[in-house]
Write a protein that binds this DNA or RNA. Structure first.
Length: 279
DNA sequence: AAGGTGTACAACCGCGTCTCA
DNA sequence: ATGAGACGCGGTTGTACACCT
């Protein structure tokens, strides 16, 4: 038995949204708030699929969206984040205030890809194109899922990327990813899983997210709270629940930590990765 | 001016994940 | 514990517009 359609297609409009439909959607969300997308179209008097309403709101009608061209800073940030996260557009969008995943995805495909290629950089691997093509002739290309990214020798990955975080899901936070070209020994904070290729020299990376206390109360914040640590997981990201228990802030990108690891020290009820990332 | 081609971006689709009864 | 329904994500498609010949 197949999956039921998300809505009654025979009675829904498709294609470009009209001004009237936009107005109806905006008005309804202003009054009732976001959510309940499936029931929203009927309640708002729209002949649209709930998914379509959500998309229209998220990508076009939301008042906090920044329209217009991407700045050079945004370009660089997208490239850096893509080199770390791969095609995780929603995560990348989460670090760019006022930009949507769809917008960034489109911008990547139409501008940045071409720009990188013209600079001789493979947009998927972030390695020089000639190196990539040589490698591809002998080795299988790696998928770009974030847990499987191979950052070794990636020319565009700096050792430290500090990103001023807009107030998104993990609010009040400075999102800091530190890519370290040596493995952490003797503790639990290793970057195991970053690569399985054993034939190349091991230059493993440690990815650390420094995360502060999240504000409570959003619908999203009620979800995915790790019962051991109090950490809240949103996709591959993590925030700290409103009333954290013991919280480990040592975070390996893409992996859930179920216990406090040995490398973390306690400060003010929080645990933070204590082993200095000496450069 | 007309047709062809390229570009940008809005919207759709399918599927994985999460929530909750 | 389980399964149906809802949500969210990433890939793909459709289409309007710009630019070229």
């Amino acid at each position: 038995m197949g999956r039921l359609p998300c809505c009654e297609k025979a009675h829904t409009n498709k294609g470009a949204w009209t001004k009237e439909e936009d107005d109806r959607l905006v008005h309804y969300i202003r009054v009732h708030g976001e959510g309940s997308w499936r029931s929203l179209p009927k309640a708002a008097g729209l002949l649209r699929c709930g998914k379509s309403c959500r998309l229209r709101w998220m990508n076009y009608l939301r008042p906090d969206l920044k329209r217009g061209n991407f700045s050079e800073d945004e370009d660089q940030l997208i490239i850096k984040l893509h080199s770390l996260l791969g095609n995780k557009w929603s995560l990348i969008a989460g670090r760019l205030a006022g930009r949507t995943d769809n917008e960034i995805k489109n911008y990547w495909n139409t501008h940045i890809k071409r720009k990188l290629v013209s600079e001789g950089i493979d947009p998927q691997t972030h390695r020089p194109l000639n190196e990539t093509s040589n490698k591809n002739s002998t080795a299988k290309p790696k998928p770009t899922a974030p847990t499987e990214l191979d950052f070794r020798n990636a020319p565009t990955v700096p050792k430290t990327i500090s990103v001023s975080a807009p107030p998104l899901d993990f609010k009040h936070s400075e999102f800091q990813v530190k890519a370290k070209s040596e493995s952490i020994e003797g503790g639990n904070c290793t970057s195991s899983g970053m690569t399985t290729d054993e034939e190349e020299p091991q230059h493993e990376l440690n990815l650390e997210l420094s995360i502060g206390i999240s504000s409570a109360g959003s619908a999203e914040s009620k979800r995915k709270v790790d019962s051991n640590t109090g950490c809240r997981f949103v996709g591959e990201t993590m925030a700290v629940a409103a009333k954290p228990k013991t919280v480990c802030l040592c975070w390996q990108l893409g992996f859930q930590i179920s216990e406090i690891c040995g490398n973390c020290e306690h400060t003010n009820g929080l645990f933070r990765y204590s082993r200095a990332l000496s450069s």
